[in-house]
Amino acid sequence: MSEQLYQERIVALAKAKTGAGKLAAPTKSARRDNPLCGDRVTIDVALDATGKIKDIAHQVRGCLLCEASASALASVAVGRDAAGIAALRHEADRALGREEGEAGEPFSAFTPVRQHKSRQDCVLLPFEALKDALS
């Protein structure tokens, strides 16, 4: 099962570390912890006057799935506002089998996590942190 879980696309997303780090002057920041496992995601965003993301950075103290998710999210977040990020969350939920339909890219990479319900929060933690940062 885990051989399928840690497929190349997820490992590649995690290793890409897209957006990893901090912003020098974030408009907003938010931190989310997963109390069950102790994983932690901190997200910085720089917003334009209309509330759209100009730049994003994340620090992940978490598992490979959490790193991959933060990386995937950062790769498509720029130019989106809170509603646009909420739409991406639906893509992740589709990948995880929580909603009907096919997941778009890059979140379809997380389809193998459907079978591992205990790990789905690892994928969603960066979404929760970003949602907090935009609220």
Partner: peptide, 26 residues
């Protein structure tokens, strides 16, 4: 370089059950 939950998940694929995380000892 490998998160503890990822280690435990791989071990599960070997039929090995272990615990990973903070063990309620933060």
């Amino acid at each position: 370089g490998v998160h503890t939950h990822d280690v435990a998940q791989v071990l599960d694929s070997f039929g090995v059950a272990v615990r990973a995380g903070h063990h309620c000892a933060q």
